[in-house]
């Protein structure tokens, strides 16, 4: 949590291996990552990290199913298995009847649920969500938060960036950031 410009997203990008720290170390499973080659960092992202963005970042020319298949496609998974796994995840997020819809044909909440399905289809260890409800109305936001909490209860580590206090209060551990520094780290 924290006001805009406090460094929440930057921290998230560092954790997600999208950015390299100028100083310090980012360890994933105890392994320092900042000096790894680009290829290796891409492989780590592919295997261990799922991203959820405020703007969804769905690809408009692809169907919901194809959007969810995308990380598996990049990982070289065979088409039949890819389709099966993507369909199963979409069913879990409650979109079994929307497989062939384009993003433009879905509501905001549904689009973000497709994006969440895409983030978890690789069964990552870490789910990183950057203001996932920022572009949604209340109803859509509730759909997404319920889904994320369900996933978290299912055993996946979730790091969520938000400036929505109400949403933040629901997390078991809250890190508050101000001016690029951790100001508070509260559990329970």
């Amino acid at each position: 949590m924290g006001p805009s410009g406090s460094g929440k997203s930057t921290l998230l990008h560092l954790v997600g291996l999208l950015d390299r720290p100028d100083r310090g170390s980012v360890r994933l499973g105890g392994v320092a990552t900042e000096h790894l080659a680009e290829e290796e960092r891409a492989a780590l992202r592919r295997r261990h990290i799922g991203f959820i963005f405020q703007a969804f970042h769905l690809i408009g020319r692809l169907s919901a199913l194809e959007n969810v298949e995308l990380p598996l496609l990049l990982a070289g998974v065979a088409p039949a298995e890819r389709r099966r796994r993507a369909a199963a995840v979409l069913e879990r997020v409650g979109l079994a009847d929307r497989l062939d819809h384009r993003p433009a044909e879905l509501s905001g909440g549904q689009q973000q649920r497709v994006a969440i399905a895409r983030a978890v289809v690789t069964e990552p260890d870490l789910l990183l969500a950057d203001e996932p409800t920022g572009n949604l109305d209340r109803a859509g936001g509730r759909e997404v938060v319920d889904l994320l909490e369900a996933l978290n209860r299912g055993g996946i580590t979730l790091i969520l960036v938000t400036h929505d206090l109400e949403l933040g209060e629901r997390a078991p551990r809250r890190i508050r950031m101000v001016d690029g520094a951790v100001a508070e780290d509260v559990r329970g």
């Binding site: 290829e39 891409a42 492989a43 991203f51 963005f53 970042h57 690809i59 990380p71 990049l74």
Partner: peptide, 16 residues
Amino acid sequence: TAEVGLLRALGASRAQ
């Protein structure tokens, strides 16, 4: 551009 960013976040390398 955003699509490129997404592909990279999903684990695509620069070369890919």
